[in-house]
Write a protein that binds this DNA or RNA. Structure first.
Lengths: 217, 217
DNA sequence: GTCTATATTAAGATAGAC
DNA sequence: GTCTATCTTAATATAGAC
């Protein structure tokens, strides 16, 4: 269970400033995660935060600044689950635990996931550096660990980059496509996550089980 | 290989109308798939299509009309791969073939995938009925087929709805997060799709292999 | 710090000439 | 059918009172 919410960075001065900044960022997350940067209106954020539009711009210099504050905080938190993948731990359990942490992130912070998805869909104009820098470096590092595990026979040999992509895709899907998932599961499951966890555990357990022979091409 | 592009519906009259309507929808797909409905500007679509803004509105009554035309055509095409899943075919091969068709759709029509993703992220305001109607009915129907296959021992028993979600998530990820995938694979793979296909075949082959015991909880 | 009022620009849509 | 010019609304941002 990962209960650490995305962090605030800028240092607020007074109590009331702290409270209002938080309210704005909370409202902005709600709006930006749904409509993306260009599709979001300051009006909506103002209304959602309970503040007036000029008051928003007293706390932040611009719409862009609010968005970029959210993204910066997010990127850091977003990498934590992968950072925690321990090269010294049990290979299969480490990967499953990573998957579980990512699924918990989707369940507990679906808006953050959608904010990220929106940004990528739009071509990642504001986080390109973070992706080619921090994120790529971290992924390459952990991919090498996973590759080694496969080579040593601790897990079945799989393409480590695509393994990581598949964990992202499968877990984030429940946040990003939540509306669709819930509409389709109507009449079957109220909460998708318990079944999702069971299903994904089975999926990755079988994929990584070292005894089973590679089945694909 | 699925070479059928998303279909046009409205009946064009003259050659030039046909050509211009096509150019507009092509440009609109480019723009809407990236920025979503609210984040897209008619100006951009005009520029991308090589027509003037008023001329766009000669062919379509409004921005909304262009978008809704795209979505309507898309929804139909979108369901084809799942429709083709044959209850009478070989279970494991049918599911793998469905996954392959979806992966080809991501590769050949990534913008369509992103248009859909954008719409769902925004809460599916314009395709809610299509989801609760057509799509849900089709998914429930095919899920029942898959459930039966599991019961009969032709494949390992898995939650069929989540199996379908996982095929969507994994294949669409390569289209929706294409920017991220390519940035991260830089220095490893030029084209992600060949490796993606190998990886996903292994993943689903092992998941569905009836001999392997359920490994999860 | 917060508000009302407003400047300024941008965006969707229309009029009317050609 | 296509263009220029324009109307109208809406959105970001600012000024200045309180």
């Amino acid at each position: 269970m990962n209960d650490t919410p995305p962090k605030d960075t800028a240092p607020p001065r007074t109590r009331i400033q702290q409270k209002n900044r938080k309210a704005i960022l909370e409202a902005a997350l709600e709006v930006f995660s749904q409509y993306g940067f260009r599709g979001s209106r300051l009006d909506q954020i103002a209304q959602a935060s309970g503040l007036s539009k000029p008051n928003l711009l007293y706390y932040f210099p611009s719409k862009e600044a609010i968005h970029s504050e959210l993204l910066t905080c997010l990127m850091d938190t977003w990498l934590d689950p992968l950072r925690a993948l321990d090269p010294g731990g049990d290979p299969r359990e480490e990967i499953l635990a990573y998957m579980r942490r990512k699924l918990e992130m989707s369940r507990d912070y679906p808006r953050e996931s959608r904010l990220f998805a929106n940004e990528i869909l739009q071509g990642a104009p504001r986080i390109r550096e973070a992706i080619t820098g921090e994120l790529k470096a971290l992924v390459d590092e952990k991919a090498e660990v996973i590759r080694r595990w496969g080579e040593e026979g601790a897990i079945a040999p799989v393409n480590p980059h695509h393994l990581i992509f598949s964990i992202w895709a499968l877990t984030q899907h429940y946040a990003d496509f939540e509306v669709q998932v819930r509409l389709i599961l109507e009449g079957h499951e109220e909460d998708p996550y318990p079944e999702a966890e069971r299903y994904l555990e089975a999926l990755f357990s079988r994929l990584l089980a070292p005894e089973s022979a590679p089945a694909g091409a």
